[in-house]
Amino acid sequence: MEVFEVLFFYLSLFLYLFANIYGFFVYFFKKEFYFKIIYKITLLAFIFHFLTIIFRSLISKHIPVIGNYENILMGSFFLIIIILLFFKKEKLILPFLFSLSLNIILFGMAIFADAEKKPLFAALKSFWLYIHIIFAWLSYGAFTVAAGVSIAYLIKKEKPLDEIIFKLSAFGLVMDALMIIAGSIWAKDLWGSYWSWDPVETWSLISFLLYGLILHLKITLKIGGKTFAYLIIFSLITVLISFWGVNFFMGKSLHIFNVG
């Protein structure tokens, strides 16, 4: 079964890459462009991605949420779901391609992550784990796509993109709040208190504050689209730190089970 897992992983990675490179090529060389083709290739890659997760689950006997490799698989899975659902309605090629690029960077990092199979430890056997993680990835996914659309906005400066960034960031913020709430409730059961000032908790609070602030700036102070896009791209750093940075560079987190 491990052979199938590896096979489907590389197939999906290859197809994501192909869709992305082909997409940029036809876009920048102004050849006849078919959004549908790029979208369908990505959809095919997504199916292989899904199969990778299925086989991984069968091998490890639990939903893949332990260690960096499994978290990348799942995180990238949620990210691509957001991309596919969002751009099915909004057929915007450049934001789609930039979002897909960010997904490839994330998904590709699975190659370097420790893929050792671990069981679901007693501490993690909780209903709240799934709630917490699903909202985390929906939130991080929305913030990542928002950053991808922001890059496209800085290149094209089209008004609808500005609104899309806002919608995605607002959705991400709501998911982020739900993630923090679910995590706090779980933490009470696991560590005995809602909040422990753990580095991951602190950084997720920083990203919540930052995105909340940016959205308030947009609504109340009506900041320009360019500033808004730059701020959204910059804020993605806090999301990256709360997921990778804290565990890799600080190593003192109670969320250390993220590390492969």
């Binding site: 000032w197 580095p199 602190t202 950084w203 609070l205 920083i206 504050l209 930052l210 909340g212 602030l213 308030h216 700036l217 109340t220 102070l221 804290v246 560079f249 600080m250 003192k252």
Partner: peptide, 24 residues
Amino acid sequence: SIKLSIFLTVSCALYYIFLSIWSL
């Protein structure tokens, strides 16, 4: 005022960043 909100939220964020770096 929203400007005060911005100042205070940024202060909070900076404070937390300081906190997490200190935790190293």
